[in-house]
């Protein structure tokens, strides 16, 4: 794998923070800072930063192996509903996979996403761990 430095650098705000796009036209909220509302297409948007606290709405324990994933398997991927009312999909860490429950309160934590071993760049970003 060869990870790009500029690609990560360019999007790191959305990886380091949970920014929410609020549409001034349709009122819907969507995760990630984005120039246009994906629901109605309006560019009349504003942004807030989530406090990073939410609840696991649903989750799955994943065994699907792909390049460089083996040290993380099995991994738990879940849908987290943030306090700000927005859903986000992400990994749930800091807990044994069998202990994850729906309704569990979680907080966003910085973790490594991928690492270009052994000499390349490391991508960091947010995942979720139990509060």
């Amino acid at each position: 794998m060869k990870l790009s430095a500029p690609q990560f650098w360019r999007v790191k705000e959305n990886q380091y923070k949970l920014v929410i796009t609020i549409c001034k036209n349709c009122g819907r909220k969507t995760v990630f800072k984005r120039p246009i509302c994906p629901h109605c297409g309006s560019d009349g948007v504003e942004y807030i930063e989530s406090a990073g606290i939410g609840v696991v709405e649903e989750f799955t324990k994943v065994y699907y192996k792909r390049d460089s994933s083996e040290d993380r398997l099995p991994e738990v991927v879940g849908v987290v509903k943030l306090r700000e009312g927005v859903r986000v999909v992400g990994e749930i860490v800091g807990i044994r996979s069998d202990e994850v429950r729906e309704g569990m309160e979680v907080e966003a934590v910085l973790r490594k996403y991928v690492s270009d071993e052994p000499y390349g760049i490391i991508y960091y970003g947010l995942k979720f761990k139990p509060v």
Binding site: E58, E91, Y113
Partner: peptide, 12 residues
């Protein structure tokens, strides 16, 4: 990058 894969979505 966030660890989401096609079978994860399908399972959810």
């Amino acid at each position: 990058l966030r660890g989401v894969t096609p079978p994860a979505y399908a399972s959810l």
